[in-house]
Each structure stands twice: as structure tokens, then as C-alpha cells.
């Protein structure tokens, strides 16, 4: 039996790892996106009492290796009485970590937002919340599309770290097969294929979204 045939027979393990990775990735990027938008909204507040700690939080996250954050949530939180299982620790760590990155991407774009549009919104009676959700956020998202796409790929790759805190995802499946049958090369080539497939699909979707923003002059696709 060739090594590839062994892996084919064990395809169920890859498949469940793949589904688990997809699930973790999907949940955590939705969480990260919401966190990023929320941080941006809070940063709109001009009060320094709020913006300074937020900026410190965002920078602290960005300067932290992801694995350390995953360790902290999984091994560290129980010592303060919060116990999350490996799966939720992983999802939580990814969401918070990449949420900070999303916030930073949004914030950078917000700095270049034309003030005239804000004035027009105020002149038309908009208050902060509606202005943010109706006018600011949609444009900022359209304008940062490519950076967000890039960040999503980082987030996908970071899911592989979760094998270290015992989450059984795609990399964990490859790990276990490679050590059971001593066929690391083939097992890891298979997971590379899976990660590439997700990334390529994501790239295509992000690119398609570009047509939407190109029509509005935000982009040239």
C-alpha cells in the first residue's frame, strides 16, 4: 500500500479536520470583524480617556505573537477562574487578535476619510451612530477590501497554531496521521492543499467584491 493510499483510507480524518478548521476560521473572522468595527466605533469618540486605552490595547495585541495569546487564554485564564475549552480558547484568541488588526486597518483608512462628507452628514441632521453605520463604515470597508483579504489569510494560517493547544483541526489531523504512519511529507502536502483551497476561494470572493466597490470609484479591478 502506498503512502498516498494510506492517506486516502484515512480521508475521514482530514475531512473532519478540514470542517473543524473552516468552522473555527469562519466564527473567528466574524468575531474579529465585529470587534474591529466596534473598536473603530469607540475610537470615533473624541474623549481621550477612552481612545488612549483602546489604542494601547490594539497595539498590544499587534505586538504579541499569536501563539502566546492562545496559550494565555487556554492555560492562563483558568488561574483567574475562567475556564474555556481548547476550541473556544482558540476561536476567542483568533477573534481578539485579528480584531485588533482589523481595527488598525480601519483606523488607518479613517484618518484619510474626507472631512467634507462628515460635514455634509452633520448638515443633513445625522448623528454619530447613524453616520458611522450608514456612511463611514461601508466606505471604509470598501476601501480596505484588499488589506482585509490579506488579513483573512493570516487569520486562516493562524488557525494552524491551535494544534498546540490541542484543538483537533486540519493541522492536527495531518500531525496525527504523520506520526501514526510515519509519512509526514505526504500528510503535510495534503493539508497544504486544503489551506490553499480555502485561500484561493477567499481570494476569488474578495476579488469579486472589488467589482462592487469599483463601480463606486473606490477601486480599480
Amino acid at each position: 500500500m502506498s503512502n498516498w493510499e494510506i492517506l486516502w483510507d484515512e480521508r475521514a480524518q482530514f475531512w473532519s479536520g478540514f470542517l473543524s478548521t473552516l468552522e473555527i476560521f469562519g466564527l473567528s473572522i466574524v468575531g474579529a470583524f465585529v470587534i474591529g468595527c466596534g473598536l473603530l466605533y469607540l475610537l470615533e469618540e473624541s474623549r481621550k480617556r477612552l481612545t488612549i486605552p483602546l489604542r494601547i490595547f490594539i497595539d498590544a495585541m499587534r505586538m504579541l505573537p499569536f501563539l502566546i495569546l492562545a496559550y494565555l487564554l487556554y492555560y492562563g485564564l483558568p488561574s483567574v477562574g475562567i475556564r474555556l475549552d481548547a476550541w473556544w480558547s482558540g476561536v476567542g484568541a483568533l477573534a481578539v487578535y485579528h480584531g485588533a488588526y482589523f481595527a488598525e486597518i480601519f483606523r488607518g483608512n479613517r484618518l484619510t476619510f474626507p472631512p467634507g462628507q462628515i460635514e455634509a452628514a452633520k448638515a443633513h441632521g445625522f448623528t454619530k451612530g447613524k453616520m458611522f453605520f450608514r456612511l463611514l463604515l461601508p466606505q471604509i470597508i470598501m476601501q480596505t477590501r484588499q488589506l482585509l483579504g490579506n488579513q483573512l489569510i493570516y487569520a486562516l494560517k493562524d488557525t494552524a497554531f491551535l494544534v498546540i493547544i490541542t484543538v483537533s483541526e486540519l493541522t492536527a489531523a495531518a500531525n496525527s496521521l504523520s506520526s501514526t504512519y510515519f509519512i509526514p511529507t505526504e500528510a503535510f502536502i495534503v493539508v497544504i492543499g486544503f489551506y490553499w483551497a480555502i485561500s484561493v476561494t477567499m481570494e476569488i470572493i474578495i476579488k469579486q467584491c472589488g467589482r462592487f466597490s469599483a463601480k463606486r470609484g473606490f477601486d480599480n479591478v
Binding site: P114, G116, Q117, E119, A120, A121, K122, A123, H124, G125, F126, T127, K128, L135, P138, Q139, M142, S213, R216, G217, F218
Partner: peptide, 24 residues
């Protein structure tokens, strides 16, 4: 308060030198 100000503001319509349409 901001909300009240927004209401009074809406009694005026403003046209700017730089148009300031919402591009999206």
C-alpha cells in the same frame, strides 16, 4: 444635546463648494 442639535440643523440644507456627495 447632539440629537436636538441635529434636529435643528436639519431645518437647514447646505450645499458645499466641494459637493461632498456620499460616493458609495
Amino acid at each position: 444635546p447632539v440629537r436636538e442639535l441635529a434636529k435643528v440643523r436639519a431645518k437647514t440644507g447646505m450645499v458645499f463648494q466641494g459637493f461632498n456627495l456620499w460616493p458609495h
